[in-house]
Nucleic acid binder design. Structure first.
Lengths: 232, 232
DNA sequence: TAGTGGTCTAGACCACTAG
DNA sequence: TAGTGGTCTAGACCACTAG
């Protein structure tokens, strides 16, 4: 424990937060004070404090000092892609249609498209062995410059489809999880009754300028859906 | 753009990753090389590199160098608590029962309990105005030392219930989302038909030593459930 | 103006890697 | 052994805050 000087700073402050001596929004001793209290140099004190800032325990305000954060209570890290709800490794992703369509008003709004801009619609079926699990639709603004390459279509992960064009580090995502029942078309594709419970996962992809670059909607048969998230 | 020297390092490396010049798992130039290439001091180069490490673009291996990360594709940050699926601000959390029970085998395993250890079961009803949205059960190992304080029961957020005993920064959580149908008891509480589509969210809470400290299961009526997650 | 955090340097020494 | 990242110091100067 605390082999290094900067770790001593981390543990010193962390212990006082854990014990409740420092409460959320309290001002903690300044860098200079901590140097004097511990005999540790300023750069090293700063390194320790930066660890606590990165861990979400402290925030710094220039000219004022360091303060204790409010704990983030409901934060979870979720790993999701279209096949992550399937536990066996026998899943398959089958492309069942690629069309160029004229988007309706809703899709035009979602993708922030100019008038008359067409959209690529990719329809895929996700299965686990012979069991049909989910029906997946991706909408991507049509561009003659960057045609969809067939190989990309089988990538189960949505951002992966853009790997040729964009650095994956620059793609921002949003996701919405809702519950519903299968509609007529989806029920047919999944060979299930209409009104069967379903989970609908929508994904919104944006480029580095917050411009929409894709929309995906994946409808899972409820009984095959499972998702985990963690928070450490 | 790039007012500071360390930001020049960040942009220099980031641009080469974005352009594909540096690919995942590539070794990038050493700190010394970067100093020579840019005329920037080593501490400042290190600060720039640490930004990229924190952003998940690089990882460092002592004695070898810095490498480009594989992009984390399916990672989402999810904010969840028991009432976050409700959009109006008229939600209420009503405690409908607190019991000391003898846990069954499954719960004993989940909470890693010694034999004959009892458990507090807290049953709550979550509503939005007069609409019953969710039924919520929390299981907490019973301890005479730390009695449940009534006020804590109304905290909608699970970790919040432990705020008196534990620093919230030390609680680790896992969460599982599944789809099901209402069972008999839950249907009765929620005044809905049995077999109505439902979302089941389980939460597992652990202390700093990875010891289980609580288990929660919240059953939402599907039609009222909505959840969002982001990834920037 | 005094105190705070933010940037930056030059240099020392250490631990680890791989030929 | 040469090269790499990791820790640490002492000191300089800057930008911001608040009396």
């Amino acid at each position: 424990m605390a082999e290094h000087s900067y770790q001593k700073i981390v543990e010193l402050i962390r212990a006082k937060i854990d014990s409740g001596e420092y409460r959320p929004n309290d001002n903690i001793p300044s860098e200079k004070m901590l140097c004097e209290m511990t005999g540790i140099g300023r750069s090293t004190v700063r390194k320790g404090l930066s660890v606590l800032v990165n861990d979400g325990l402290l925030y710094a305000v220039q000219g004022k000092g360091y303060y204790v954060c409010e704990p983030k209570k409901g934060e979870f890290l979720l790993y999701f892609n279209e096949t992550s709800a399937i536990e066996t490794s026998a899943e398959s992703v089958k492309v069942i249609g690629v069309d160029i369509i004229s988007p309706d008003a809703e899709m035009t709004a979602i993708l922030d498209l100019p008038p008359n801009r067409q959209t690529v619609l990719i329809k895929r079926l996700i299965s686990d062995r012979d069991t049909r699990i989910a029906y997946d639709c991706k909408y991507i603004p049509y561009s003659a410059k960057s045609p969809i390459i067939e190989q990309e279509l089988y990538k189960s992960d949505f951002p992966q489809m853009f790997a040729k064009e964009k650095s994956l580090f620059d793609i921002k995502k949003k996701m919405r999880i809702t519950v519903g029942e299968l509609d007529g078309q989806t029920a047919k594709v999944l060979r299930a009754d209409e009104h069967t419970p379903a989970i609908i996962i929508e994904q919104f992809l944006y480029d580095e300028n917050a411009q929409p670059i894709g929309y995906g909607i994946t409808t899972f048969l409820g009984k095959y859906f499972k998702l985990s998230a963690i928070c450490e």
